[in-house]
Amino acid sequence: MEALELKAEARQTTGKGLGQLRRQGYVPAVVYGKGVEADPIQVEAKELRKVLAQAGTHQLIALQIGSKRPRMTLARDIQIDAIKRSVLHVDFYAVNMREKVTAHVPLVFVGISPAVKDLNGILVHGLSEVEIECLPADLVSAIEVNVEGLTELDSMLTVADLTVPSSITILSDPESMVAKVEPPRLEEALEEEAPVSAEPEVLTGAKEKKEEEEE
């Protein structure tokens, strides 16, 4: 998978000055890694959003800091403003291309399950991503999950059923459910679950007269 390019600058601003830096359109960040001294940097917020939207935390980012040689990194800790949803800070992990890394990769569901199409089953997704381990150059943007093999109700796919290149090891629990076709909900079951409203008592003329005589 080809690395995405991102330009950055060395950062001198720290502490209380970070607020002003963000108002100027930059996001403070840091580059760290095994045997690498942490390097504070700043990145244009607009360009950073574009790259992170595509790379997430599982695609290589070629980080160009000033005139230095690009460094292959992975975005790790991404801090997001809870209200504005803007990026506040990013930790970039400098990878060694000869050493394996771990990453969470999204699952993409493809195909149509015959159990859904012909038996009115309901397709339920158990996972949206899995954790993998591989060399940085072998990272993938997503793992496809083909549900066309789910031909019966209650049939399912687990992590062990996922197909990935031999260079990738899936670390997630192999027994975890990825997708399952559940039986359709019958109308009778829905009627039983529906709450029964209590009807108000209606007094007939005879009953009203009897109650008046008792009084």
Rank of each mutant, 00 (worst) to 15 (best):
L6V: 02
A10T: 14
R11L: 07
Q12H: 14
G15Q: 03
K16E: 01
K16N: 05
G17D: 02
G19D: 03
R22M: 08
R23N: 13
Y26N: 08
V27E: 00
P28M: 06
P28I: 06
V30P: 04
K34D: 07
G35I: 01
G35Y: 04
G35W: 03
Q42M: 04
Q42C: 04
E44F: 10
E44D: 12
A45V: 06
A45I: 06
K46T: 10
E47Q: 02
V51M: 05
A53M: 12
A53Y: 12
L60C: 08
L63H: 04
L63R: 02
I65C: 09
I65T: 10
K68T: 13
R69H: 14
P70M: 00
A75F: 10
R76K: 12
I78Y: 02
I80V: 13
I80F: 12
K84V: 07
L88N: 09
H89Q: 01
H89E: 01
V90L: 01
F92E: 01
F92R: 03
M97V: 13
E99Y: 14
E99P: 14
E99D: 15
H104A: 05
H104G: 06
L107V: 06
V108Y: 06
F109G: 00
I112G: 09
V116N: 01
K117R: 07
D118I: 15
N120S: 10
N120V: 04
G121R: 03
I122C: 00
I122S: 01
I122L: 01
V124C: 11
I132Q: 07
I132G: 08
L135R: 13
P136A: 02
A137H: 14
D138C: 00
L139S: 01
S141Q: 09
S141L: 09
A142Q: 14
N146F: 02
V147K: 00
V147A: 00
G149D: 03
G149W: 05
L150T: 04
L150G: 06
L150F: 03
T151W: 09
L153V: 06
D154A: 02
S155M: 07
M156G: 11
T158C: 03
A160V: 05
T163G: 12
S166E: 14
S167K: 07
I168C: 13
P174W: 05
S176D: 09
S176P: 08
M177H: 11
V178R: 02
A179D: 04
V181F: 02
V181Q: 01
V181A: 00
P183K: 03
A189Y: 11
L190D: 10
P195H: 02
P195Y: 00
S197R: 15
E199L: 15
E201A: 14
V202M: 12
V202Y: 12
L203G: 14
T204A: 05
T204P: 05
G205A: 15
G205C: 15
G205D: 15
K207P: 10
K207D: 12
E208D: 14
E208F: 14
K209Q: 13
K209E: 13
K210P: 07
E214L: 13
E214A: 12
E215W: 12
E215T: 13
